[in-house]
Design a protein around this nucleic acid. Sequence first.
DNA 1: AGTAACAACTTGTTTAAACAATATTGGAAA
DNA 2: TTTCCAATATTGTTTAAACAAGTTGTTACT
Lengths: 244, 244
Amino acid sequence: MPKTKYELIYRDLKEKIEADEFPYQELLPPENTLIQIYDCSRNTVRRAIGKLVTDGYVQTMQGKGVRNIYRPVEQTAFTIGEIETFRESALRNGQTPRTKVLLFTEITADASLSKHTGFPAGSELYYLQRLHYLDGKPLILNHNYFLKSAAHDLTPEIAANSIYDYLENTLHMTIVNSKRTMTVEKITEIDEKYMDLNVDDYNCVAVVTSSTYNSDGIMFEYTQSRHRPDYFHFQDNAIRRPAT
Amino acid sequence: MPKTKYELIYRDLKEKIEADEFPYQELLPPENTLIQIYDCSRNTVRRAIGKLVTDGYVQTMQGKGVRNIYRPVEQTAFTIGEIETFRESALRNGQTPRTKVLLFTEITADASLSKHTGFPAGSELYYLQRLHYLDGKPLILNHNYFLKSAAHDLTPEIAANSIYDYLENTLHMTIVNSKRTMTVEKITEIDEKYMDLNVDDYNCVAVVTSSTYNSDGIMFEYTQSRHRPDYFHFQDNAIRRPAT
DNA sequence: AGTAACAACTTGTTTAAACAATATTGGAAA
DNA sequence: TTTCCAATATTGTTTAAACAAGTTGTTACT
């Protein structure tokens, strides 16, 4: 449950928009009205509205008002701009997640791996291969590298559930941000074997590589997620900023 | 050129970070110092810093400071969270763009197209197929649908240059936001023919579909961009928000 | 009727101030 | 020396106020 006022207002407005309480393409109540409704200052409602803008739920128009442009979208596996674990996104979409640990080892980064992952050479790492199932279908093959010094005592049991849950709630690590890249790559034999794919059908997978940082500014994770192409679906809301 | 103070501060800090004037992993000057440097209020510097956070340039730590976590990245064709035209991203990366108009027609949306694009049935549309070259290589095949009533008098000549430039600078339309989806799809004969691809090599393309809105809240464009998989590269910075 | 000016309403930017929450540091006390 | 606490420094949240800028509707005048 949120503890800040603007977060409360943001969520309330978001729910109301999703519940169609404001007509599509119509204006939301003006700031002054929201100030009275939520008994807060103008800055606070503006902060909430700002989040709705980046979510693509509304657009603001100086001199006119705030227009609802939200359209319900088909359920999607991934959203951009936020870090969400496999479990979280599955549950959000009412699907059943399962994770199988294919490999759990400890390795030391050599020069080649260091260049590839960004970890300093000599770093002690956990290297995992995990297969994520959604409603019984194997959809994502993950290659995870975790810094041992940051992810103490990781076990295959934890890896089969939620590593982030362990990091956040047991080790009390604060995960801050993640730099991600999406590309399309040729399928490998491992992909083919585990994700039930056939080269004659699709010979590519969607690949998301991410470098994730904690609140100490340390990159503690490098992950390559290989997605079955027919189930890969990424969403984004982009904002045009006036030419400079 | 920016006209607001926070935008100036944001750009100045961004440039300094890119120019390595603040050491990687070290703290930026505290807010109070920046207030003096830029002769502004605390809110204004905080607004600038907030933008750097969403850019993934810095991370803020309550009680400690603001840490520089910027790492230069290889030049990339596309960034997430902002709308950028093909020309703009090419020029930003010092590459030479060229656009060839393969098809330029006018059509009326029937039920099927309406469902596909989101335009109301009966809408008068321009339908274009355009091929984007970068440094001589055909990389992106675009299927563009523009609302005729919003993109008056579009011509093949304009389409060969920049449609957005025409919309913004001639028609004075304000482009606001764009909802985008990324997927991987099977290659088509058209893809194969124009993008110089071979089914035996890659049999997929990366597909970005976008619905773009102007400041009147009207969806005036629906575009499907089909990218050569070996050159497709999308970047993102995601922020973890505390569990609710 | 048309238009020009004005008033009212809306969002955008900036400043100022107070208090909360977290982290670090230094000194006092054990 | 070690431990604990208080002071200090830093970012986070919220309020209040003023002015700027854009839109809309009304009024008054020609």
